[in-house]
Design a protein around this nucleic acid. Structure first.
Lengths: 63, 63
DNA sequence: GCTTTGTGATAGGTTTCCTTTACATCGCGT
DNA sequence: ACGCGATGTAAAGGAAACCTATCACAAAGC
């Protein structure tokens, strides 16, 4: 499951640590999700959508 | 994380087994998600949204 | 040079998701 | 009364999603 995390984070000039703090997860989790190691849980996906002010469907892509 | 699975399933007159087959998961998984035992993974949430033709945000509710 | 910041990766451990198998109940039709 | 579809639940095991701690490295600044 592909995602646009890295781009969205760059648009806001946030470091991985900055995003991790906003999501209340570890920096390693953010890194793992960005690099496609695994997909976030649904609750975390909702939190990600919230901090970016977008819909889950617009951040995570099927395919 | 609350969800409207039971209602959506009832609207379509699908049994848990019917939905499980469409999602390609076990019936117990559908039952567990419906009864709030746990949340689906993100990929499964996308499949659920697909079979109902809705957005994830309209099936699973924050709060 | 040295230090800081950002990023990628790994090892080891816990929790959550999902499976198979199994059992109990309830409602409905025969 | 009997069978059957639908549902709820539980145990045991594996896979996936988290965690902390740690190392490595490149780029930038002083």
């Amino acid at each position: 499951m592909n995602n646009r995390l890295k781009v969205l984070r760059a648009e806001r000039n946030w470091s991985q640590q900055e995003l991790a703090s906003r999501l209340e997860v570890s920096r390693q989790s953010v890194n793992a999700i960005e690099t496609g190691k695994y997909d976030p849980s649904l609750p975390l996906a909702f939190r990600i959508a919230d901090v970016f002010g977008m819909a889950i469907e617009d951040i995570f892509l099927r395919e």
